[in-house]
């Protein structure tokens, strides 16, 4: 009996290892291309590193000193732009998505069509969306300026939307939202679908108004989904780079780079990878910090509301 069991156990043990060995090559490639570079960023930020010849020379904390010494102003500006980007994105996108989802929540044909329609821009490439919008924002030929000129021909056209950084960031965020609106709407819709309508109806039978049952019953039940959407929005906002990079043009006067776009631009033009690595490390901590703070905050809010 015990013999039998031992043989069985051994067989199971072998089976497990067989699967692990099958998995190893996939994990190896994944580790090589996704994990190893991520780890390499930290030590390499201490080196002067020529990407073409691959010669490395130790310089210590030199690049960090530069970033927080000579170039402190632009570093702070980038941090502020990143925070602004996240705030704009979270504020505008979440509220818009919430309103649209609630307006479209009944599963009629009309609503299904609009939900699918709002999703459509997501299939377009970032470059297509940004080229279209950079035409909309264009100072002279741009549609927005020309439409404004119909009302106030003295002032428009010729106004650059990328002159003041708070507005420039907003312009990038608008494009971001225009492109990705389908995502939060889909998440929220699926959340609303899981909330049982009976509960709200029962509350209404008991004398609650529609408004009350919405705020007191459905929203708390939806909370996990809303939290998930908020988390996702903040992360994508903090990591976003494409819209700022692709929208940029000659009329961009203000420095509206967030960490993501600054990192991308510096990779593109780098002759020394050391400072780029230092910037990556910085971004890792900023984005990681934002994620951690909001994660803790959301947990607390959730605990408080759900009791």
């Amino acid at each position: 009996m015990t013999q039998d069991r031992k043989v069985k156990l051994k067989k199971k043990y072998n089976m497990v290892w067989k699967h692990v060995i099958w998995l190893l090559p996939f994990y190896g490639v994944w580790f090589l291309f996704s994990v190893y570079p991520q780890l390499e960023v930290f030590p390499m930020s201490l080196y002067e590193w020529n990407p073409v010849t691959n010669v490395k020379e130790y310089v210590g904390l030199h690049y960090y000193e530069m970033m927080f010494g000579l170039r402190l102003d632009s570093t702070l500006q980038n941090t502020w732009n990143t925070i602004l980007y996240v705030i704009y994105l979270l504020g505008i996108q979440s509220i818009l998505a919430m309103i649209l989802t609630v307006a479209l929540r009944r599963n009629t044909r009309h609503n299904r069509f609009f939900r699918a329609f709002f999703f459509m821009p997501m299939v377009f490439s970032g470059s297509m969306v940004c080229l279209t919008w950079s035409y909309m924002y264009d100072a002279n030929l741009g549609v927005i300026n020309n439409i404004l000129a119909l009302f106030n021909p003295e002032k428009y056209p010729g106004v650059s939307f990328f002159g003041i950084n708070a507005i420039a960031v907003l312009c990038a965020v608008i494009v971001h939202i225009w492109h990705n609106m389908g995502h939060p709407i889909t998440i929220l819709t699926s959340g609303f679908n899981t909330v049982e309508e009976d509960l709200a109806e029962a509350a209404q039978v008991d004398g609650a108004t529609k408004w009350q049952s919405f705020w007191k019953i459905e929203i708390p039940l939806m909370l996990p989904t809303i939290m998930r959407m908020v988390l996702l929005t903040i992360l994508t906002g903090a990591m976003a780079s494409s819209y700022q990079v692709l929208l940029g043009n000659l009329s961009a006067v203000a420095d509206y780079d967030t960490f993501g776009s600054l990192l991308y631009k510096s990779i593109l033009s780098a002759t020394d990878y050391g400072p780029v690595c230092a910037l990556s490390v910085c971004m890792f901590f900023v984005v990681g910090g934002i994620t951690l703070i909001q994660f803790v905050a959301l947990r607390k809010i959730e605990d408080k509301i759900l009791g």
């Binding site: 990407p51 690595c277 990556s280 990681g288 994620t291």
Partner: peptide
């Protein structure tokens, strides 16, 4: 869940 900042080192690796 970890912000990925490996673009630059990944590029160097591919080189």
């Amino acid at each position: 869940f970890i912000p990925s900042v490996c673009a630059v080192t990944g590029l160097a690796l591919r080189r």
